[in-house]
């Protein structure tokens, strides 16, 4: 087993290589005549943000939220509603004007989703276990039906965002440009998560997952830390939703559907629960599976089901653990 400095050097080298590959990706895709890979990669990055955020609550904090689609979808709707007001020259709730500035819409999406997570978390965290799973699902369902019924925001059909948000004057119509926006956001999120999980806060959160009784006995008030983690997690999911609305140039209640919560959980567990890069691996694997299997058969979920089942039942720790085991064997 390599000692600590060597290991952290190897980790650093791995991250650097990953970063280089991600930066090179759009150029390589164009060069190889596969420009369709670029939005696909954006999708992976966006889901990686959402899954990694969910993982903060679920993997590190042990809070099995079955309602993260609420935060993801709401983030998307923030972009949609602001855009609708912007092009219609109207005011949102009659209060403030709309916008298509990425640097406004993204933080606002995080703020709004975070506020929702604060409300949902404050109530849901009074329960635990299966009740927590179900109450988070219930709140997400409420939001789903709310948006289905809001004709002003398109109801069932959702809202079309005809043109992607801009960064000052920089237009993101070009898929590669937008990919770099996503990459920048994902980098920020992963760096933030990395700092959070090794910080004092992160250690408390991990302790709460392992044994709440113990944490109380050393003088920690569990509720506020769990709630804070839940809010951060919701904010990350909201950011991902806002990016997704831009990528697809469309938001609809689909983003709020409970199966979306399920998909995010699948990505986390596919990649590796409670690991930093697991959700990225999981998102990549999920999207890759979806893409290749759909090309092969319309019944792609028939193949996804057994794969997921095997991962849950027989691999401990998902792809992340698998990679670690493989690289461990090599060295």
């Amino acid at each position: 087993m390599p000692d600590a400095p060597q290991r952290s050097f190897a980790a650093l080298a791995g991250v650097a290589a990953l970063m280089a590959a991600l930066i090179a990706l759009p150029f390589l895709a164009k060069w190889a005549g596969q420009p369709a890979l670029i939005p696909l990669a954006s999708r992976i990055l966006i889901y990686a943000i959402a899954a990694a955020s969910l993982n903060l609550a679920l993997g590190y904090g042990g809070m099995v939220s079955f309602g993260h689609a609420a935060f993801f979808g709401l983030g998307g709707y923030v972009v949609g509603v602001l855009y609708q007001a912007y092009v219609g020259d109207a005011r949102v709730f009659g209060l403030f004007p709309g916008t298509n500035q990425l640097l406004v819409t993204l933080p606002l999406a995080m703020l709004v989703s975070g506020a929702l997570a604060l409300a949902i978390g404050a109530l849901s965290l009074r329960t635990a276990g299966v009740q927590f799973i179900m109450i988070t699902l219930a709140f997400a369902q409420m939001l789903f039906y709310l948006f289905v019924s809001l004709k002003a925001y398109g109801g069932d059909d959702g809202l079309i965002v005809r043109r992607r948000n801009v960064l000052f004057d920089l237009d993101a119509r070009d898929d590669a440009t937008f990919y770099f926006f996503c990459l920048a956001a994902a980098t920020l999120v992963f760096v933030a998560l990395w700092r959070i999980v090794v910080s004092r806060f992160g250690l408390i959160l991990g302790g709460l997952r392992q044994n709440e009784t113990r944490m109380e006995a050393i003088g920690v008030a569990p509720y506020r830390y769990k709630l804070a983690a839940f809010v951060l997690s919701g904010m990350g999911a909201g950011l991902a939703g806002a990016l997704m609305a831009n990528l697809l140039r469309f938001v609809s209640p689909d983003m709020l559907h409970w199966t979306k919560s399920g998909e995010l959980m699948i990505m986390v567990i596919l990649g590796g629960v409670g690991t930093l890069f697991g959700p990225l691996l999981g998102a990549a694997a999920f999207i890759a599976l979806e893409t290749f299997l759909t090309a092969w058969t319309e019944h792609w979920q028939l193949a996804l089901g057994p794969i997921l089942l095997v991962v849950v039942l027989f691999t401990r720790g998902g792809l992340h653990a698998l990679l670690a085991r493989l690289s461990g064997r090599r060295s």
Partner: peptide
Amino acid sequence: YSVLDNVALAVQARQGHSFRFLREA
């Protein structure tokens, strides 16, 4: 967690709130 982590977390709890996100604990 490690033995040291278990004790250090109790030390940390004694030092006040743990809403510190940046330094590696």
